[in-house]
Amino acid sequence: MKSKLFSILALLIIKLCLGQVGLNTQNPQGIFHVDSGKNNNDSGVPTPDQQGDDFTVLKSGDVGIGTTDPSARLHIVSTSGSALRIVDGSQGENQILASNSEGYASWISSTAARKTISGTIPASSAILSSNSFVYLNANIILPPGNWLVMLGTTLVKASEAPSVSWIHFALSNSATSFSNTADIDLARSGRQMASASAPSGSKYSFAKGVLCVRNSGTVDKAYYVWARRSDGDVVINGILSSSVEERYLYAIPVN
């Protein structure tokens, strides 16, 4: 037993003198090399598959995980798709890793990690024939965060009546009864997302606008599109419906 311990100690001293230590390998590729799978050859450079379970430190101080030839202070190679996991309490879905001026990193929320959201617009739409708000069968579902909601649609009058009317669009959290959503950021936008005139003597017009919405909750929230005319006796057909050539409803994330 003593002779075995002496032999192991002697080998370790020799390795240290040579400047290389290998665990589970007789062929270390750096000053410290762990072959956790014990699957490397006794000579030559391990294959990429063999390096997959290796940990290597070079004389330069570079550390390789999954590679025996790191080219940075920390070089990770993984074929599993999950090469790095940092759990510090700030992690979350769609967070990105950012550093401060001293190089300390943490997870933060960023618009770069969030996608544009498309709304649901109808094949057919309600008809505006009174001064009361009408639900347009259109809605958009927004995750938590700040959003610019954008709407545009052709307005088609039922006739070329010589009458002028203003058409107003707004968002509500209900599809059955209208009230302006409380999530509008009034420091950035007004209460209504779009307004347009239905001019006298013309059958067509176009409405477009933007509304800043802040979903300060923790879950996705639905916002429903309503519209009304403010004056006049104009009848508007096909708002946001497939019968018009131009229509859109989407939201882009903002900080």
Rank of each mutant, 00 (worst) to 15 (best):
A72L: 02
M150V: 15
V87Y: 11
G19C: 06
V77G: 04
S90I: 00
L171P: 00
L186E: 05
W147H: 08
H75T: 07
R188E: 09
A170K: 00
Q192K: 08
S165E: 08
E102R: 13
E245S: 14
S130K: 01
R247L: 11
T111C: 04
N94H: 12
V57N: 06
S82W: 04
Y250A: 02
S101W: 07
L9I: 09
L240D: 02
L240T: 06
S106T: 11
I184H: 01
N41V: 00
I140M: 09
L136I: 08
S90Y: 09
T111K: 11
F133H: 02
L249W: 05
S216N: 14
S99I: 03
K208C: 04
V57H: 10
K115A: 14
G217K: 08
G92L: 06
E160H: 03
K115Q: 15
N255V: 13
I141A: 06
K221T: 14
V164N: 12
I108S: 07
S109K: 02
S99L: 07
N255H: 01
G238H: 13
P143Q: 03
D53H: 11
Q29L: 10
A113R: 08
S132Y: 07
D49Y: 04
L151H: 09
N39T: 12
A196F: 01
A83D: 01
P122K: 05
S7A: 15
K115W: 06
L74Q: 13
L97K: 06
I76D: 03
L23F: 15
K4R: 10
R214G: 00
G201L: 10
T116A: 10
I13H: 05
S195C: 01
D233F: 01
S110N: 09
K15E: 15
V77T: 10
F133R: 01
M150S: 10
F32A: 09
S109G: 07
V219E: 03
G238W: 15
S129N: 14
V134G: 04
Y104T: 12
S78K: 07
T67K: 00
I167K: 01
A10M: 12
K115F: 03
S71W: 02
A194V: 01
W107V: 05
K115C: 10
T153R: 11
Y135G: 00
S82G: 09
V244E: 14
L155A: 11
T181S: 15
L151P: 04
L97N: 02
S179W: 08
N27I: 00
S118F: 08
V164G: 01
G152S: 13
V21L: 15
D42R: 13
A123N: 12
S189K: 04
K59L: 08
I141N: 11
